[in-house]
Design a protein around this nucleic acid. Structure first.
Lengths: 336, 336
DNA sequence: CCAGCGTACTGTACCGGTCAAGAGCCACAC
DNA sequence: GTGTGGCTCTTGACCGGTACAGTACGCTGG
């Protein structure tokens, strides 16, 4: 069974290949009768519609947007926040008739998704700004929007106001009277850095330093979950234990609460804990977490709107999404 | 600045276009000297490497595998199990030099990812077997592997032995002495069905029915989380309350524990609860969940191995991955 | 009666690569 | 001296579509 192409259908019906193409792609260019006849013939031959690869070459667009992610994708999926981001991105894309292609940053030179996979545009998500993959995208002149990322140069961006959110969280502790505050942050590659982690750290200090609060900083890698627990233990199991802990994420905050309980401490009576992101974990935690809310679905939608604009030649203004403090039950004044 | 193509580089260096192509794609076909010269020229012109779309057409493969998913992608990302599956799939794919393209099942006729996006193969994940998208894939002769799905006809498949796992879970309750058992399952589209949900139900009954246990079944949609909580309340807040509940997922089990506590019941003393999947929730829950373990990363790897084999013309045998019961602290004999 | 126009279809030139076969050249063996 | 083979590079066809500029024709209006 030879492959069915526009030509074989054209031969069958006795029209030109172009007319068959129009039957599929531009119905207004031919009479309804003929179109019906062509579609019937196509059906009969088992034609699966115009070949996407050929169409992509001819039209100059593929119908799919890439998402460049650092490192193992497992992290991106397992983290509630980035998973929610991916979800909102792909939902927003499919509303616009676009598919989402994941482009893991390459370790290997032989296969570089950012170079070797056809996409119409790309979102760069939590990624080392110096990654060669980004350079490839630029080189191929692929429209790009960076997300949760510092902007280097002339690139469209969508960011969350992490710094303000962190400042609100720290100020909340200061207002409650805390003066010895632990910080449980993300351990990041010093070269690559992690933009949200840096911004949040700045925000926390924005509020803590003017108040003269003492800080104890502990960093832990993203995974595995036990690492955060151990780090929290290290932060709490010491003579000059802080009276409150600011965490990089809600997951870290939950781990901190567990560690506190293991040490016989009650949250928030003995220890206040603040999370970040207001993910599903936050409200369900016990006690429910005081945390910094960010609009993850809005971030996804904004990213898609931005990439769509860049793809159509526009130059969208940088987006900075607001954050807000959500006070629940994991914070209280320090023990007397 | 005109677009840089193989031809422009060829002109620049004074060789044929084919030689430039070989410089990128088959280094052994030309002398190292000339190759270096060509690459230098390409670099100078700002060439981004062979155009993936053109290459895809010429070579007949795109370097990317599709994943067909039902409904809103949000669910797929928010559920811990399917997120872990996606993660292992994309990791396994990138090891083989393949990217992952998400193909949401279409609602709209005008854009059907399964028909309009170029992929070399596709995994069909928890999807209505009757979905038109599957028919499109078949029509386009895209190699397909179905995952967590009943096999209709001659398609490669990767499944988990849900039924056996469910049987083990139910038998565990029977062995503990439970004779009035609630079942909190997934509410599914009656037409589409959900293969794991059906299999698990069969497995539970495999053990409960011979023991003469009485069952009370309640179904709840996947989202939102509160729905499961409410459903669990409905199951527990009745005179003939079951002494144990078998849940479709760990998330449902956690919701059930919450509901039990809200009613003043202690788990497992007053009520035994069994989850499914052994996701991250299970061990972290309080009390830690007795649940059915499935190897999600293995499922991802098996799916990728299978699709790779199908893409290279093979016909892999169906895979059925084992499940096992993990007994933790959420189950005990029924109250006296 | 013919310009002018809209409708329906066709012809040709791409899109930017890869494949398979061939041709020039030198080395080496017989 | 020449056949054989390997290394390089070139030639021409092809992948399966789409864009754009026609062409043919019937209808309308002055």
């Amino acid at each position: 069974m030879a492959k069915v192409t526009l030509q074989s259908i054209a031969d069958r019906v006795g029209v030109s290949r172009m007319t068959v193409s129009n039957a599929f792609s531009r119905p207004d260019q031919l009479s309804a009768d003929l179109r019906a006849k062509i579609l019937a013939a196509a059906d009969e031959l088992g034609y699966g519609g115009p070949d996407p690869a050929a169409r992509a070459l001819a039209r100059g667009r593929t119908g799919s947007v890439g998402l460049l992610i650092n490192g193992s994708l497992s992290e991106a999926f397992e983290d509630a926040v980035s998973a929610a981001f991916l979800a909102s991105v792909s939902d927003a894309l499919s509303e616009r008739g676009l598919a989402l292609t994941l482009l893991p940053a390459s370790s290997d030179q032989s296969f570089v998704p950012a170079r070797d996979v056809a996409v119409d545009g790309a979102l760069v998500y939590i990624c080392d700004p110096a990654a060669p993959d980004i350079a490839w995208l630029e080189r191929r002149q692929v429209p790009v929007v960076v997300v949760d990322h510092n902007v280097d140069g002339d690139v469209a961006s969508v960011n969350v106001d992490d710094r303000s959110g962190a400042r609100l969280a720290a100020q909340h502790l200061v207002d409650l009277g805390h003066r010895r505050v632990g910080i449980l942050t993300l351990e990041t590659d010093p070269a690559a850095g992690n933009y949200p982690a840096r911004e949040r750290m700045l925000g926390w200090h924005d509020a803590l330093d003017p108040a003269g609060a003492e800080t104890v900083v502990v960093a832990t890698p993203f995974a595995p979950p036990e690492a955060a627990y151990d780090a929290a233990l290290g932060l709490l199991d010491r003579p000059d234990r802080p009276t409150a802990v600011l965490c990089f994420s809600d997951a870290f905050a939950v781990a901190t609460i567990r560690a506190a309980e293991a040490l016989g401490l009650t949250v928030p009576a003995d220890l206040s804990v603040v999370g970040f992101d207001d993910s599903v974990l936050a409200a369900g935690s016990r006690p429910p977490l005081t945390t910094v809310h960010q609009e993850v679905p809005a971030k996804g939608r904004a990213a898609v709107a931005a990439i769509a604009e860049v793809m159509s030649g526009g130059r969208p203004a940088p987006v900075l999404l607001p954050t807000s403090l959500v006070v629940r039950e994991s914070t209280a004044p320090p023990p007397a």
